[in-house]
Simulated assay, not measured.
Amino acid sequence: MAEGIERLDRFMARAVAAYYARPASPFGRGGDFTTAPEISQAFGEVLGAWAAVVWDRMGRPDPVLLVECGPGRGTLMADALRAAGDVAPAFRAALRLHLVETSPALRDAQRRALGDAVAAWHDDLSALPAGPLLLLGNEFLDALPIRQFVRRGDGWAERHVADGAFHELPAADPPAWPDEAPEGAVREVCEAAEAIIQALARRLSTQRGAALFIDYGPAESCLGESLQAVSGQQGGIDPLAGPGTVDLTAHVDFEALATRAREAGAVAQGPLPQGLFLQRLGLMTRAAMLAQSRPRLAGDILSGAERLVAAEGMGRLFKALAVCDPALAPLPGFETP
């Protein structure tokens, strides 16, 4: 057996923590990847308006926690707060902003972007104070560590990592999947994401509120491996090489997360394609208004918004999933036409 061998999820957790602890920002054109808030300010604005509408449907609790998981440089939340202040001043006054972020470097960036709007930072969701809650998580779940199981014979092996290579060991606790999987098939499980959704669902079912996650992955659980590494806006990099120096992500299993939410007593809505969800929230209308007010940037503004909703861009691969207390369904954007 190779020395220093560890399960894939533990390797990924260490690598992701080291990556985001670096002083260099991974976001934007000069970084490794570009997320939706960096592509269009309309993205954060329509999510801020979404939160305001949900707050109104909750009965306007004051105070209410507004939480973002994985806030990046604070771009999404800065846009959301500005929109909330414009369309719903009462919501802006009632909200208490809490950010879930472990990286000291990113906390500094968020502090610069948001200033004293932030009530507190937390390492995880368990540290949040009690009370009604609205939560946003954009490209947060995809960075959580996954386990990979490989079909071998009539059972499953689990992937471990050592010396920059995968090693398969007999799976001690494989999930109960159907036996039809072909030889060599890979199934991924993100226990961290499932635990977060279950905890949120239990909280929301008793303390009121809603959580909105936007990320990429299939709508239904499926076989296949999706672990990938990105650096300098380029993919196709060995995810085991240079841990802590490249961005590691994996597809989100939305069906599994929706199931966990329902098991814990909450309502799960979606997943919906991001493009459909954002169009229902009026993203293209907002982008057109921004383009009209900034004619020199109109082309970039409209092309950025189109990238978020177009099927050939991010509109189909990315999905929106909401979890809420039963009294709130259906949420904006998830209504049946």
Rank of each mutant, 00 (worst) to 15 (best):
Q292D: 14
A305Q: 03
A291N: 01
G299I: 00
G313E: 01
L297R: 09
M314L: 15
L290D: 00
G299V: 02
R296K: 06
R280E: 08
L290T: 00
P295V: 04
L302R: 11
R296F: 07
G304M: 01
G299Q: 14
T285K: 13
E312T: 06
F277A: 10
L278N: 02
A287D: 01
L297E: 15
R286D: 03
L297P: 02
M289I: 07
P295W: 10
P295D: 08
M314I: 05
S293W: 03
Q292N: 08
L278E: 09
R286Y: 00
L317F: 12
G315S: 08
L290R: 07
L308N: 05
G315M: 02
S293A: 15
L317S: 12
V309L: 05
A288P: 03
L317I: 15
A288V: 00
Q292I: 09
T285D: 14
L302T: 09
Q279K: 08
R307A: 13
L308R: 11
L290Y: 08
L302C: 01
R280G: 10
E312W: 03
A287V: 13
R296A: 05
R307Y: 08
G304D: 09
L281K: 02
L278I: 13
R316A: 15
L297T: 08
I301W: 08
F277H: 10
G304H: 04
A320D: 09
L317Q: 11
A287E: 04
R316C: 04
A311F: 12
R294E: 14
A288N: 05
P295Q: 10
I301A: 04
A311M: 00
R307I: 06
